[in-house]
């Protein structure tokens, strides 16, 4: 079973929750599941957009009392081109 990391970013405003997710995903490997708790309204737009762009998988978004759970599975990090 994959490791699951929970980040409680409730009370933090944009860009706090997204940055917490970015930092956690950067520090972990493919297959790891990260659950972000956010009460920031902007997260419902920002988080799925970033997850898609960065090639990860949005497993589910769960509505809760005044906040949301964003469950993300880390995907394969995109290849870099390293050229001039």
């Amino acid at each position: 079973m994959s490791q699951k990391i929970v980040i409680d970013a409730r009370g933090a405003y944009c860009p706090g929750p997204l940055m917490e997710l970015v930092k956690t995903i950067k520090e972990n490997t493919i297959g790891t599941v990260v659950e972000l708790l956010s009460s920031d309204e902007g997260s419902i737009v920002d988080i799925p957009k970033w997850v898609e762009k960065a090639n990860h998988k949005m497993v589910e978004i769960i509505e809760d009392d005044g906040f949301r759970h964003f469950v993300v599975e880390i995907g394969e990090k995109k290849q870099r081109r390293r050229r001039r």
């Binding site: 950067k26 090639n55 990090k77 390293r82």
Partner: peptide, 9 residues
């Protein structure tokens, strides 16, 4: 190489 790379690839 004067290249900046992002976490998003």
């Amino acid at each position: 190489e004067k290249l900046i790379e992002s976490l998003e690839g």
